[in-house]
């Protein structure tokens, strides 16, 4: 799989804003950014209210996903270009989520909203009116998604990649530094996990590093690429970004995202937790 199969550049995006069969979608947790201005023609997907079940901690089910995409005017054979703020965290989550429900024609805008803005490209407030479709999803492809028991079993057997910042990994911080440090969970990480912060997979402008740079990064971190890998973070969106780097850009076959991540693991009773920095016991 080449970079062009999974990513588009901002230049390509600008040249294809009106291409039939191409749908741009901005995915964010805080959708006020979309309201303030978005890529012309882009629809909005709200990570929190539209991709998460409103009651249980889980995704919307298959029927819910079909209903959502139908309402957004996205058809099964459309090429969906996802982008968002936070260095594409939530867009990468949506990408993984689209793949989970079997939508293969999906790509990320490399660098996301940040790159588009830093390029000085136009943003508009006009909301597109796309006719509804009759979208059909597949059952979840669980070869891409890890649950807690599999994660516990993976300790010392599979690669566990903790993609949070070093201070979250060590237990010094309980959340990313742009959020208040309020949390009831224990700090630390899953034993045997290596810490490769998501930010190391991206350039300053939010674009992904090359496959060769990523390979060097993970090899230096001690990742055995012949083994299965599970990525996690705090709530599963930064690890979607890393899942994208490992599975889509580097082409590793067996990579799962553990979307329960530290907010789940760090609250489980009876599981082992390690503190300290990378390699520290």
């Amino acid at each position: 799989m080449s970079r062009e199969d999974v990513l588009v550049t901002t230049q390509w995006a600008e040249e294809n804003l009106n291409t039939p069969g191409v749908v741009f979608a901005e995915v964010d947790e805080d959708t006020t950014a979309y309201e303030g201005g978005h890529i012309p023609g882009a629809v909005r997907i709200d990570w929190k209210t539209e991709l998460q079940d409103p009651v249980r901690r889980d995704f919307v089910d298959k029927e819910g996903f079909e209903k959502l995409l139908s309402a957004k005017g996205i058809a099964g054979d459309d090429l969906v270009i996802l982008y968002g703020g936070n260095n594409n965290w939530f867009a990468a989550y949506a990408y993984w989520y689209f793949k989970l429900y079997g939508h293969d024609k999906v790509k990320l805008l490399d660098g996301g909203r940040k790159k588009w803005e830093l390029d000085g490209r136009d943003l508009v407030k006009e909301v597109p009116d796309r006719p509804a479709t009759n979208y059909k999803a597949s059952d979840q492809d669980l070869s891409l998604r890890a649950f807690r028991d599999e994660v516990v079993d993976a300790i010392n057997t599979k690669n566990l990649v903790d993609v949070r910042s070093p201070d979250e990994f060590s237990g010094k911080l309980l959340a990313p530094a742009h959020l208040p440090q309020e949390s009831a969970q224990r700090g630390g990480h899953i034993p045997s996990a290596v810490n490769v912060p998501w930010a190391q997979t991206a350039n300053e402008d939010g674009t992904f590093k090359t496959a060769d740079e990523l390979k060097e990064l993970y090899e230096d971190a001690g990742l055995d690429t012949s083994k299965a890998t599970i990525a996690y973070c705090r709530i599963g969106e930064r690890s979607s970004h890393t899942w994208f780097a490992l599975h889509e850009l580097m082409g590793l076959k067996d990579v799962k995202n553990y979307d329960g991540s530290w907010t789940e693991y760090g609250s489980l009773v009876g599981v082992p937790v390690e503190t300290g920095s990378n390699g520290g016991k």
Partner: peptide, 9 residues
């Protein structure tokens, strides 16, 4: 706690 990871205003 915050249940998201986006930055507050």
């Amino acid at each position: 706690m915050s249940d998201g990871c986006g930055a507050p205003e």
